[in-house]
Design a protein around this nucleic acid. Structure first.
Length: 580
RNA sequence: GCGCCCGUAGCUCAGUCGGAUAGAGUAGUGGAUUCCUAAUCCAUUGGUCGCAGGUUCGAAUCCUGCCGGGCGCACCA
């Protein structure tokens, strides 16, 4: 449609008098109008030509309109304002969208051909040391919707969760579980101040004890002679305890560690799955080391001559690649840093053939971007293959009251609690309603309220209303002939129907735009507008009327609207209920 | 100090590849239901688009500076 109108404009410009060098002039473009009074599409070409042609914009517009070839798509044109050329589509081109929607079905709005681009979307990637909290929920909802959006736009998308299952935190987790397990017999034993203290630790300890009680160390052997513990003890106490546990338990400590990690990961997976968020792969950080990928990456850096040994410490010269300081990759004690794992992981993503590495990270991680990109570039990968989307923080409200969060306050709100309270649909939609780079105020009360200000119900209600109409069709002894309905769309001669059809027509470009901007919230806004258009029509006109042409046409429009509502909600991971 | 994000109606936010009188919900006021779900719709009040310059026929949108808020600047993971 757009292309065809531009084509008409091109031909009109060719025919324009007094134009010496067409190529030097700006090419005509058209855009959607905001106001129906301005037609369906508008071009600003006359204003852009005013200066080079030294004529008034309105005169140029008049000349262009006069030179415009006849076309069945266009009902009429108009010159308005400072020199806009407005195009009013003919009824036939307006109503054609309904057929396109129904023919494409659930594919409507999706790219017609694959882009051939392989995209890896990595998101959540929360440390497996405890249950997900409300902040992770936003990452989950955003990442999952973003993956859906890119798939709709034709990309070949893989969703991945990077599991930080290496390093001291997993040992601290195991030590925490161990102490809880010992506390079953001796409640007075102290939990390390650096340990994890949530109730879930106790649950894991109970489960682990069932089959592993015989591997429990003697508490005296474990605790006696450890350094002083306290809030300011630093790592000395916990590290000593871990070392002690490893000595006393041998391989059983490793079993405990794996048991704990698996228990938490299972819980996370279950939590996410309950919200409709699934991953193609959970990628283990520990596997990077065991499979030699970190050494591979370090070797690439060495081969490329971008690392220096400075007094036994291996430094990556990140400043050569735009980072603000150089980064340690191997410490003087021989241990590789987290950063080394990270670039090895990203190199692996590239080697698995992904064109675009799309990382969804917390806003507090923006410092990483430059160094990882530097790492990729230093390893010979295009720096622009890494794209990072930062997700800002979530504040919880209940009514007007801010809900305190954080493990220390004891007011910890888990994702599971939030889902239990507001339901998955509200959770998914509220999480992505705002742009990801905007702080989010999540109001629990609003999310469950059944009112106009709650977009979840507003949108779902529109779908349920349509479903309700079709349900009652037979009961009223009426029929719907979809083919006849398509033919009769011209009888829908009113502004509400026209607005609805124009909105349906915009869905594909909305999906494209949202995917390009990595902004699922654009889809939310669209669906809210579409729901408004439907509710307006619904209020003004009955669908189940006696007149056959009107009934067929209106029901056909309703069917198309329901389809687009479903398609949009599917991208967002929100259900489209038949009744409410 | 440096870097990233944000500043639009009383409140929560859309709108930013520059476009025609700046939009929605909410809050306030007044209406619509013998009729497919009123979880709906209609009308109306409300804004120096943080401030100051600049570019442009045209700036909430682009550029520069400033002010205000959030976050980050590890040989931690």
């Amino acid at each position: 449609m757009k292309d065809q109108i531009v084509e008409l404009l091109e031909r009109a410009l060719d025919a324009l008098e007094g134009v010496e060098d067409r190529a030097a002039l700006p090419a005509p473009e058209i855009e959607r109008t905001r106001d129906a009074a301005h037609g369906d599409y508008a071009s600003n070409i006359a204003m852009q030509l005013a200066r080079p042609l030294r004529q008034s914009p309105r005169d140029i517009a008049a000349a262009i309109v006069a030179a415009l070839p006849e076309n069945a798509l266009i009902e009429r044109t108009d010159i308005a304002g400072p020199g806009f050329i407005n195009f009013f589509l003919s009824d036939a081109s307006t109503t054609a969208v309904v057929g396109r929607v129904l023919d494409a079905g659930e594919r409507y709005g999706h790219a017609e051909a694959p882009t051939g681009r392989k995209v890896l979307v990595e998101f959540v990637s929360a440390n497996p040391t405890g249950p997900l909290h409300v902040g992770h929920g936003r990452h989950a909802a955003y990442g999952a919707s973003l993956a859906n959006l890119l798939r709709a736009a034709g990309d070949d998308v893989t969703a991945e969760y990077y599991v930080n299952d290496a390093g001291r935190q997993m040992e601290i987790l195991a030590a925490s579980v161990l102490v809880r397990a010992l506390q079953v017999d001796n409640g007075a034993l102290p939990l390390p101040s650096a340990g994890y203290r949530g109730d879930y630790i106790r649950d894991i300890a109970t489960d682990w004890r069932k089959d592993n009680a015989d591997t429990l160390p003697d508490p005296g052997d474990l605790f006696d002679g450890l350094p002083e513990d306290g809030p300011d003890a630093g790592d000395a106490y916990i590290d000593a305890m871990i070392a002690r546990a490893e000595t006393l338990m041998g391989g059983a400590f490793l079993v405990l560690k794996q048991f704990s990690t698996t228990a938490i990961l299972d819980d996370i997976r279950d939590d996410l799955g309950g919200m409709g968020v699934t991953f193609d792969r959970f990628y283990s950080e520990a596997s990077l080391a065991t499979e030699g990928r970190i050494d591979d990456a370090l070797n690439v850096l060495r081969d490329n001559g971008v690392v220096d040994d400075r007094d036994g410490t291996l430094w990556f010269r990140a400043t050569d690649f735009g980072d603000e300081k150089d980064r340690v990759v191997v410490r003087d004690n021989g241990k590789k840093t987290y950063f080394a794992s990270d670039i090895a992981y990203h190199l692996d993503k590239r080697r698995r053939g992904f064109d675009l590495l799309l990382d969804v990270l917390g806003a507090d991680h923006h410092g990483y971007v430059a160094r990882i990109r530097a790492g990729l570039e230093a390893m010979g990968e295009p720096p622009e293959s890494l794209e990072v989307r930062l997700v800002q923080f979530v504040s919880l409200f209940r009514g007007g009251e801010k809900v305190a969060m954080g493990t220390r306050s004891g007011n910890f709100v888990s994702l599971r609690e939030l889902r239990d309270e507001v339901g998955n649909d509200a959770a998914r939609l509220f999480y992505i309603m705002r742009s990801n780079d905007q702080h989010l105020d999540f109001d629990l009360e609003l999310a469950t309220s059944t009112s106009n200000e709650n977009p979840v119900y507003y949108i779902q209600y529109a779908h349920a209303r349509i479903a309700g109409v079709f349900k009652q069709l037979a009961g009223q002894g009426l029929t719907w002939d979809p083919a006849a309905g398509r033919g009769a769309l011209g009888t829908l001669d009113n502004e509400h129907a026209a607005a609805l059809m124009t909105r349906l027509d915009r869905f594909p470009e909305t999906v494209r735009n949202a995917a390009e901007r990595r902004a699922p919230n654009v889809i939310v806004n669209y669906l809210r507008d579409l729901a408004t258009d439907l509710h307006r029509f619904y209020n003004e006109y009955k669908f189940l009327v006696d007149d056959t042409d009107s009934r067929n046409a209106r029901l056909t429009l309703a069917a198309a609207t329901g389809q687009v509502l479903r398609n949009g909600l599917a991208i967002l991971g929100v259900s489209a209920p038949e009744h409410m």
